[in-house]
Computed example of a mutant assay.
Amino acid sequence: MAGEDTPENLPPGRMPTTRGGVIRSSDLEPLAAFLDRVPRPGIVPLCWHWCQLLDPVDPRLLDGDGFLIGGMATPDRGMTRMFAGGRVHTLRPLRLDVETTRTTRFSSVISKKGRHGEFQLVTLTSTWVQEDQKALVDEQDYVFTTAPSPSRPSVTDTPLTTQPTEPGGQLRPGQIYVSEPMLVAFSGLTANPYRLHWDRDFCTREGHPGLVIHGPLQALWLADEFTRRDVDGVGRTFSYRLTAPATAPSVMTVDQTRDGGMEVRRSDGTVTAIATLI
């Protein structure tokens, strides 16, 4: 039977959190350098808010996997976390130099029991407010699932022999060389200490052939491609979904789909993420 948790029965570490502050143009510089992009003046580009108003990380409060003990996005003991996708609803531009608050809460926590054991479907919703008006509503979906046995590789990620260890020549338009230092840097930009993205030995024990590329990083590439093509996200919803795992080092490709959406592909042609902006 599926069960749904409500705020009344959530532990203290999973109650809503709020952070506030003013986002300055200088706050965008780290991600701008990371993406090699120059943002439009005065506003936060689509999905760049993922690097703003972050909760601080106290390393003394991290568990062995790099999760915040009792944190909002921390799976229960014996389970692991997979980022599944989400939706960013841009109601109005998120402006710089304006007092801003970000409130994050559980909007859905559903426990289920499937063929391979127990899992939870979790959605966290962050609401960004400026001048008493909602600017963004950001929904992120996670799957908390029973961790695979350390004695066997993950069934969702097998070694990819076609992935290069270095770029091997000039990249074509839309291609991105993903190195291990890139993933370490993105973990820092997003205050994400999960070992799956920076600890090769940990990834090997979990059955992955390399560091796992962040789902939000792939979503950010997709959002950036819409922006690069001058598609305005204001008044629209950016919806994205992770469809297959990818590990580094590798060359990933971001491209437009036939229906006007965007996708990320591995070097073997497998689509790992898709997105629309409607």
Rank of each mutant, 00 (worst) to 15 (best):
T103E: 12
G70T: 03
L96G: 05
G64F: 10
T237V: 14
T237H: 08
L222M: 14
F186L: 00
G64H: 11
M15T: 13
R105D: 07
P56N: 04
M72R: 09
T127P: 08
R265P: 11
L96W: 02
P45E: 04
Y177K: 02
S26P: 07
P16A: 08
A32H: 00
G66A: 03
H116L: 13
A248S: 11
R195Q: 02
L183H: 02
E131K: 11
F186K: 00
E131I: 01
T80S: 13
L171Q: 05
R172K: 15
R92A: 15
P93T: 07
R19P: 06
V254E: 06
R241S: 09
G66D: 03
W50Y: 09
G168R: 07
E180P: 08
M72V: 09
M252T: 07
P193F: 06
A219Q: 03
R102D: 09
V234R: 08
G261A: 02
D5K: 14
S267K: 04
R24H: 14
I23G: 06
P209E: 00
G78M: 04
H49A: 10
S267P: 03
F202Y: 15
I213N: 00
T165M: 10
S267F: 04
R172C: 12
R24L: 14
D65G: 06
E131T: 07
P193V: 02
V129S: 07
R228Y: 01
L189M: 07
W48D: 07
P249H: 05
L217Y: 11
F202P: 00
D55T: 13
F202Q: 00
H208E: 00
C51Q: 10
L220T: 11
S187Y: 02
S179L: 00
P12K: 13
S25T: 12
D199I: 04
M262V: 11
L28I: 01
L183M: 12
Y142L: 15
L277N: 01
T18E: 11
P181G: 05
D65Q: 10
A135H: 01
G85V: 01
D65N: 12
L220D: 06
A185Q: 15
F186Y: 15
E118W: 08
T100C: 09
R115T: 12
R115A: 14
E4S: 14
